[in-house]
Design a protein around this nucleic acid. Structure first.
Length: 502
RNA sequence: GGGUGUAUAGCUCAAUUGGCAGAGCACCGGACUCUUAAUCCGUUGGUUGAAGGUUCGAUUCCUUCUACACCUACCA
């Protein structure tokens, strides 16, 4: 569609703004200006002068240059107030016929809400005691052609907020705040990890085999090589290759992709932080995770006492440690030795809200049944941060068995707010054991399990050279941000969540 | 995948039993130099998500489709 046709297809408000813009152009007014540097920001001015008095400004005039988007205009004939918003917040302008002159004032009255302007002037206190820039020059920097959402109700349509996130960010301060916090959180994670001697690395997203987790991958195609490739489902196997290579401590703040359903807790692409520590153990990693979350909470929120989804959550202090069997026995109100009774487990599982019955039930291992009860009875009750440990080995194929009791693995998962935040274990570094587990997966694949892990000969080869005893951990960054920003949907902490095209 | 709900002006929402599609804000014009959802006066703005059906007549009832939200399932 040609531009003229496009413009005609727009509604009256937009056409009117385009007409205004063209009139400005005809007068020689720049509508997309460049090279303007403000010397002040709204929040900084309010922090510094918010409680000053007019007398101090009279005695010592403060000249400022500000820039931002016009969010409101209130005209009183020959004088006018406008609110402009920059990255830090909102500051009020007073634009008067007497302060900017007749020509500029006439032009200013044609500015629209949404336009980006530069204003210079001196600070003053309004009669209602609001810090205000008494504007002496005001200049259009960028013309806005589309009206912003209505000022009182704002933009509430969830779909439009996600699709047009820029609009969401313009009008919803709390959304902007959430993503500022997300940025701080990832920054603090980097700082924390590098301070602990971890190297930040980047491993392939395009992989010939998608390994390191059990999930369906996205498939894509490389033209020159004429081969299908996968988007990674986890960086795990590459990070452990680096441990073999001698890195000893590595982490990757990684985007991973899983070709699965979308819901409040799952987006097809999501951010994890995986880290691996040679000579570490899962108990050492508990301390790391605990301290890291506490440090970030203090740095970003200024407190370890959080409010999330209607719950008060205290992430300070030493987190609760809970064995799986202990948690399940307590939830069922029985002693732990009952959990070794297969018939008892089957009875409980077949009466769960989402029961397993018949052949499926018979096929599951004791460990699977135990975890099924845990998932349905315990997980959502773990509101305060809790390390759950002593997992059955049958549900943990990548974890190293416990030396004292090979039925269990040296693994923990950490829960907060009723959802899983992270998963960690001592890594399996026995190459032949690993190879056998891959072989078992291939059998599952042949039986139709499209999530079964593929054989990775090169990874086995790496382990054959010898991987030092290592513990590894994955933290769900999106979920951590949800926790710290009191968001109950993953889409509220991902700037551009996956959407079907319009 | 299953269930429930929603879709009307730029935005937020109404519309009685099926009977002329409306309000507030925004926009446009006018008044106003201390407002902050400014106020006051006057206008403008619609393919009612798409297609089909019933009917003299459909925003309303029926069918199909599309998108989104919530719940649920799958899935770490």
């Amino acid at each position: 569609m040609e531009n003229t046709e496009y413009i005609e297809s727009q509604n009256a408000i937009i056409r009117n703004r385009i007409d205004k813009m063209n009139a400005f152009k005809d007068e020689g007014v720049e509508v997309y200006a460049t090279n303007y540097q403000p010397d002040a920001r709204a929040a900084q001015l309010k922090a510094e002068y918010g409680t000053a008095t007019q007398e101090t400004f009279d005695a010592n005039p403060v000249h400022v240059k500000v820039a931002g988007r016009i969010m409101a205009i209130r005209v009183f004939g020959k004088g006018s107030f406008a609110a402009i918003k920059d990255a830090t917040g909102t500051i009020q302008l007073f634009v008067g016929l007497n302060t900017v002159g007749e020509e500029a004032y006439t032009r200013y009255k044609k500015f629209d809400i949404g336009d980006i302007v530069a204003a210079e002037g001196t600070l003053m206190m309004s009669k209602t005691n609001e810090l205000t820039v008494r504007t002496t020059t005001i200049k259009l920097l960028t013309k806005s052609l589309r009206p912003l959402p209505e000022k009182f109700h704002g933009l509430t349509d969830t779909e439009q907020r996600y699709r047009q996130r820029y609009l969401d960010l313009i009008v919803n301060d709390d959304v902007r705040d959430t993503f500022y916090k997300r940025s701080m959180i990832t920054q603090k994670i980097r700082a924390y990890m590098t301070n602990q001697g971890f190297y930040e690395v980047e491993t392939p997203i395009l992989q010939a085999k998608a390994g390191g987790a059990t999930a369906r991958p996205f498939v894509t195609h490389h033209n020159a090589l004429d081969m299908d490739m996968y988007l990674r489902i986890a960086p795990e196997l590459y990070l452990k290759r680096l441990i073999v290579g001698g890195f000893e401590r590595v982490f990757e703040l990684n985007r991973s992709f899983r070709n699965e359903g979308l819901d409040r807790r799952h987006n097809p692409e999501f951010t994890m932080m995986e880290f691996y520590m040679a000579y570490g153990t899962y108990t050492i990693l508990m301390e790391y995770v605990e301290t890291m979350v506490q440090t970030i909470a203090m740095d970003v929120m200024g407190t370890t006492s959080l409010r999330w989804n209607g719950n008060d959550i205290e992430v300070g202090g030493k987190w609760r440690r809970l064995r799986v069997r202990e948690a399940v026995a307590s939830a069922l109100g029985v002693t732990e030795d009952k959990l070794s009774d297969r018939a008892f487990l089957e009875e409980i599982v077949s009466n769960l809200p989402e029961p397993i019955r018949g052949d499926d039930l018979a096929k599951k291992s004791d460990g699977h049944l135990l975890m099924e009860i845990f998932d349905q009875k315990v997980e959502e009750t773990l509101i305060q941060p809790t390390f759950v440990y002593e997992y059955p080995s049958s549900v943990s194929p990548l974890a190293r068995r416990n030396d004292a009791d090979p039925n269990y693995v040296d693994r923990f998962e950490v829960f907060v707010g009723g959802f899983e935040l992270g998963n960690a274990f001592n890594e399996l570094n026995d190459p032949l054991d690993q190879r056998q587990r891959f072989l078992d997966q291939i059998k599952k694949k042949l039986e139709g399990d499209d999530e079964a892990h593929p054989m990775d000969d090169d990874y086995v080869c790496a382990l054959e050279f010898g991987m030092p005893p290592t513990a590894g951990c994955g933290i769900g960054i999106d979920r951590l941000v949800m926790l710290l920003t009191d968001s109950d949907s993953i889409r509220d902490v991902i700037l551009f969540p996956t959407m079907r095209p319009e």
